[in-house]
Design a protein around this nucleic acid. Sequence first.
DNA 1: TAATTCGTGCAACAAATGTTTCATGGCCGA
DNA 2: TCGGCCATGAAACATTTGTTGCACGAATTA
Lengths: 290, 290
Amino acid sequence: MAEPAKSSPLSELRIALPSLPMRLQEVGRFVAANDYDATTRSMRDLAAEAGADPAAFTRLAKAIGYSGWDALRAALTESRRPSQISPFSGRAKSRRHGPNADVALVSDKLEAEAMGLPRIAAPPIVEAARALHDAKRIWITGYRSCRSVAELLNYELRLFRPEQVQLVGTSGPDDLDLGAFRPGEAVIVIGFLPYTHASVRVAQAAHRAGATLIAIADSLSAPMAEGADHVLLFEAASSPGFFPSLTGAIAIAQSLAAVTFSLGGPAAKKRLEHTEARLTAASTYVSEKG
Amino acid sequence: MAEPAKSSPLSELRIALPSLPMRLQEVGRFVAANDYDATTRSMRDLAAEAGADPAAFTRLAKAIGYSGWDALRAALTESRRPSQISPFSGRAKSRRHGPNADVALVSDKLEAEAMGLPRIAAPPIVEAARALHDAKRIWITGYRSCRSVAELLNYELRLFRPEQVQLVGTSGPDDLDLGAFRPGEAVIVIGFLPYTHASVRVAQAAHRAGATLIAIADSLSAPMAEGADHVLLFEAASSPGFFPSLTGAIAIAQSLAAVTFSLGGPAAKKRLEHTEARLTAASTYVSEKG
DNA sequence: TAATTCGTGCAACAAATGTTTCATGGCCGA
DNA sequence: TCGGCCATGAAACATTTGTTGCACGAATTA
């Protein structure tokens, strides 16, 4: 196995974790999960809270290459020192070339996308959620990279409205679903430049069928936004990256699902709990650990 | 003796500072200026660096109203604890009822998610991208809501590396793919609390096979992060919503794809152009209109 | 089955920690 | 000038810290 980067003591710990004895794994996990306490409180204190032997901490430190717990904690403390993280402007010194160019690129991209989120208009989302709440059935469409957004929306809505939500094109060719749109139903279409023909066709079919059309797009002039009852806008090109940013679309989708759920009231809550209970019963999840 | 329940230990210190003896002022200023070291290093250590007597620290603490240096440091430690992600709690007083309640909810959610993005660490993303660049093959895994992230990553990476990227579980049962992991390949696992058994199984299989494991998760203590060569963290619970936030994961995924593409150089660019040309020729997109 | 290694908890150890005491020296009021 | 007061540094104190040696039990190997 390739030797991993020794960037942080915590990552060294994680990497060595699986090959450690059981008790040391427990302690290691505890340290990873409570790294702040690990740097501030005493070893015996941590041991008491973790329900482990104090010696285990010393042994853990030695097992991953440190001279003792003191050395591990010192490394942890240094890696957590805030001075190196806080100043955003300090990144300006990073040169355009060299190994840090990519880091600067990523940081800029994240920061740019963060700026875009608060610019999303909330009221249209709430209105669209009301439309979804009233809809007898909900269809969701998204192609290419927007398919991920469509599937997320489909997934979250189905958590509390399983029978009434459906992705277009999953139970056969898209064209079959296009003919199934009815008044009183809602169709969500997600897309941005360049727009796919398929998404436009779905939007047109929805409009023609008299269904409520909700478009999540990057522009009011997007083809699938024509004739839409609700248009939710996000900035796809806000980031200096190569691919259009989808964080805005994802944020809209999740907000839409959250508000729709909120409108659903106790019934939706009960439904969600029921779904979660079923998943838990099927032991889908890893059980909570101590 | 009663401990003061004031706002912040540091502000108490600053307030009481001018009325203190000269030597205690020096020490107090040192503590205020190096509060991180004050919580992590020992009293004698600080005294040595400040060029003061260790006893001065005890006297300082008592002068402010604490029972001793230990009490002061404990207060400092608690006030600095990072888990309190509550710079927003002040605004939480916005009306809970009325027609605008949902709008406020959405706005808060978007703002909270925007705050989370810049907190994502960029260097690990770049390192992970290097690993992807070197990988002979890339597997991607994500279940439940994380599947949307996995599919987005799969889509974007396939734009310029079509043959070497594959979603786990698309060409048959997951278990078939699990046996196909090889050293020199990279496996990406995306997940957050509650963690699915399936994702943990994939991570373990990757680790066992000697493949490079990249985990995109909400915590260092996530099961699939154990033994991972790269862990990319995002905040899933940062928003006051019902479903875990995925904007962080999406942002990481897109940054990862962007940097990997960047590392690919002209070859990747050529490949992407080729793919785009093919899609255009198939008239997938709506032609630019005037 | 016997021998051996390994993981683990317990307890004792030396070192380091925070606190206290004491002696010193400067300052101000009498 | 004297006497009391306070700030200050050094050293001694009890406590707590991280560490290590030892014994017991389980798992592994011959």
